[in-house]
């Protein structure tokens, strides 16, 4: 028997546990959000179509956008200089609609490894990379990565050499951050599109590095 008999009530016919549905009543803040949204629509401040369009715009953003920015910086030294001077302007220059995002790019080198966090809430460069992963918003990551970053990075599978300095960037106010990962060895002949495929979301948060080619 794959499962204990007493567990059968909680398992689907395929043997997996049922996921709890959201059968509980609305919370105070959920009710508040619905009321404010309906009032704004009723008074003509915004419309359902405008809200849906905004949700669609956010859902269309993904780490692939950030990966294209990184790949451009790897192949074009002048673009990289502009990215490090003003990452918002450099992202707009590539045609990304990042709204009011104020972005700072921090560069990984042989001596420095950068990691992004928001200890106070869940600030993230959403307007370029899309929505953050769930773990980024959780207390465990937010509280631990400022206190024991090397241990946290090890849990992500990233072991840093002793001579590399770790720099944590806590997004406490108006800036958002993106890590410019190191370009992997053995990628000399690759074009921008192929390079972008090596750039993961985790590499741009700093809990990982870019993939090796092949």
């Amino acid at each position: 028997m794959p499962h204990d008999h007493h567990d059968h009530d909680h398992l689907s016919p395929s043997g997996h546990p049922y996921r709890k549905d959201q059968d509980h009543p609305l919370s105070y803040w959920q009710t508040m959000e619905i009321a404010v949204r309906e009032l704004l629509v009723e008074k003509g401040v915004t419309s359902d179509a405008e809200i849906m369009a905004q949700i669609d715009r956010m859902d269309a953003r993904s780490p692939a956008d950030g990966a294209r920015v990184v790949a451009r910086a790897w192949t074009d030294p002048e673009f990289k200089a502009r990215l490090l001077a003003d990452a918002s302007a450099a992202s707009r220059e590539m045609g990304f609609d990042i709204g009011a995002l104020r972005l700072i790019a921090v560069e990984n080198t042989a001596q420095v490894h950068n990691v992004i966090v928001c200890t106070l809430c869940s600030c993230y460069p959403r307007n370029l990379l899309g929505l953050p992963p769930d773990w980024y918003k959780q207390r465990a990551y937010r509280s631990r990565v400022v206190r024991e970053p090397r241990k946290v990075l090890r849990e992500f599978g990233l072991e840093l050499p002793d001579d590399v300095t770790v720099r944590i960037h806590d997004s406490t106010a108006d800036m958002r951050y993106i890590v410019l990962p190191r370009r992997p060895d053995g990628t000399e002949g690759m074009d921008e599109a192929a390079l972008a495929a090596l750039v993961t979301r985790d590499a741009m948060i700093g809990v990982g590095v870019a993939r090796m080619p092949g």
Partner: peptide
């Protein structure tokens, strides 16, 4: 943007004293 050393923030409990935390402070 202010840069703090781990030694300054966590004292003797720091994982690596010369690693850093940057934060935006008004």
């Amino acid at each position: 943007r202010v840069r703090f050393t781990m030694a300054e923030v966590w004292g003797a409990a720091a994982e690596r004293p010369d690693d850093t935390i940057d934060a935006e402070i008004f």
